[in-house]
Every structure is written in C-alpha cells, then in structure tokens.
C-alpha cells in the first residue's frame, strides 16, 4: 500500500498552475492524504472536476481523472457512477463552479443521495478569470466586478446541501488542514452523497483587494474566524459574531440512489425472466 502522498501525484505534470500562497493545494493535499490513509487503490478512484482553479487539481493526481465543462462535474460524475458503481467517485469543485453555474446540479445530486463525495474549494472568488465575485463572496468584499464591494448576500453551502438532502455535510479550512483531512476521510467512507466545504485563501484574486496582504494574513483570518460546532454550542452570541462554523453538520443514513436503482432493476429483470 502506498503511504507517501507523492505516490499519488503525477510529479511529471508539475509545476501546477496555482499562484504562490494559494489554498487549493492545501485542500488537495488533505484529499490525497485522506485517500492514502484509507488505503484506496489508485485504480479504484475516479476524480471528476469542472472548470476553475480547483478543477485543475485532478491533472496532477494519479487516479482516473476527467475534467469536464463548467459547473457540470457532478452530472458527469452521476452518469459515470451509474455506469461503474464499483468505483469511488470524487468531485472537486470550486465556489463558482459548484455554487454558481453548477448550483442546480449540486442540490439535485444531494437530493438523489448518490454515493459521490464532493469537495468544494471555497476561496470566495472567481480566481482563474481574475477575481470576479462569486455566489460565496461575502457581502461588501471587493472584487474585479465589485469595485465598491459586492451588493449580494452569499450562500451558506453547508446549509444549502443539508436542506437539499445531503447525508454527510462538513466544513473545514486550509488552516485546519488536519481536521479537514479527517472530515474528508469520513466523507469518503460515507455511503451516500457527502459534501465537504474547504475554505481556502486566494491571495491574488481576493486577499490583495480585501486588506489581507499575504497568504499568512489569510490563513490567520481563517484561524481567527472559524469556530468548531462544539465550541460554538458553548459560546455567547458576542463570541459568535462574525464567526463561521467548522466541523460535521450532518452524518446520517438514507437510501443511496444507485442501491435503490439497482434493486429496482434487479426486480424488473426478474419479472422479465418469469414472464418468459
């Protein structure tokens, strides 16, 4: 069994495309370490992405990998999973890809509860196209399309997919990388639709416009503003002001879509056999 992370990387495809200080690599590191720890065979894992900085993750990891169109990774993954139910299917998406152009697919994939693990790298900005605000950019933040600050409120993605029916929902950050790795490992082992949001820093597209001058400033912001669900339960409203929750929001059992489908198919095939 491979244990070192580098064994899961396509080292000949380095360097990657991300800017110095980018948080995407930290989230990807957590994904790969979780897979390594769980001992999945590289041949058994499929990683599907869409378009954006986070979607360039799968070119440099040594699994079965395909990059699709903007926002549609989950729909491609759904088709693939139904064709190859024995394979472990992971989708890595970003805030624009997963909550904007692909938001409809995200809620419906969660509703179906198909066994796909989705990692949403949330850096609060469209990074690849140069820093436009996304549906997850907090109101008031500066972006290349919001010179005086965004006027729109943002989604809470964990609440959204929870409401849509996801059976595993968690949030971590690049700063809390070890915790994130544990959350991803639990998501991967979960049978059903699992969703982990990883808060990541984008120093170029977001930080330099929003008074977080360095990647370290941005990681410190994550440290200072994240609060675990357990700690939050004991905290006063003042202590919670401006904070966001990290940890596990949902972990429940429900019929998994492909199980339901194949059971129905088995019955239909049996019926045809009997009719003959």
């Amino acid at each position: 069994m491979a244990t070192h992370v580098s064994e899961y990387l396509r080292l000949d495809k380095m360097p990657h495309i991300w800017c110095p200080g980018c948080g995407t690599g930290i989230i990807l590191g957590a994904v790969v370490r979780a897979i390594a720890k769980l001992g999945y065979k590289r041949d058994d894992v499929v990683v599907v992405t869409g378009i954006g900085c986070s979607s360039r993750t799968n070119a440099i990891i040594d699994f079965n990998t395909f990059q699709t169109t903007h926002g549609r990774a989950l729909s491609f993954a759904t088709g693939f999973k139904m064709a190859r139910p024995e394979m472990k299917v992971i989708v890595i998406t970003g805030d624009g890809d997963g909550s904007g152009i692909g938001g409809n697919h995200l809620i419906h994939t969660a509703r179906r509860n198909i066994d796909i693990t989705t990692i949403l790298v949330n850096n609060g900005i469209y990074g690849m196209t140069g820093g436009q605000y996304s549906p997850l950019t907090p109101r008031g933040c500066i972006a290349s399309t919001a010179a005086t600050g965004t006027m729109e409120p943002c989604f809470d993605m964990c609440e959204l997919v929870k409401a849509a029916g996801a059976t595993y929902v968690a949030r971590g950050t690049a700063y809390h990388a070890t915790m994130l790795e544990q959350l991803i490992a639990k998501a991967l082992e979960h049978h059903g639709f699992s969703f982990v949001e990883g808060i990541a820093q984008c120093p170029i597209g977001f930080g330099r416009r929003n008074n977080q001058k360095t990647p370290v400033d941005m990681l410190n912001w994550q440290k200072d503003h994240a609060i675990t669900i357990a700690a939050a339960a004991k905290a006063s409203p003042e202590e919670l002001a401006g904070k966001f929750l990290i940890g596990e929001f949902v972990n429940k059992e429900a019929p998994e879509f492909s199980d339901v489908y194949w059971e129905a198919s088995r019955k239909a095939q049996q019926k045809v056999k009997e009719a003959r």
């Binding site: 599907v48 395909f66 699709t68 169109t69 549609r72 989950l74 729909s75 491609f76 993954a77 759904t78 088709g79 693939f80 999973k81 139904m82 064709a83 190859r84 409809n104 697919h105 419906h108 489908y261 129905a264 198919s265 239909a268 095939q269 019926k271 045809v272």
Partner: peptide, 27 residues
C-alpha cells in the same frame, strides 16, 4: 432497467447530456 441498463431523468437538459457522456466514459 429490464436489461440491466441505466435510465436517469435528470434535473435539466444540460445535466442529461453530461450524465450521458459520464456514462460513456464509464464504458
């Protein structure tokens, strides 16, 4: 379903096309 195949009614036309390609990547 009677022949062990897969039928999916997707949430929209876009995802239908995506799922079809995903399944074809699956063989």
């Amino acid at each position: 379903p009677q022949v062990g195949g897969v039928f999916l009614q997707m949430e929209d036309e876009i995802s239908s096309m995506a799922a079809v390609i995903g399944a074809s990547i699956g063989g």
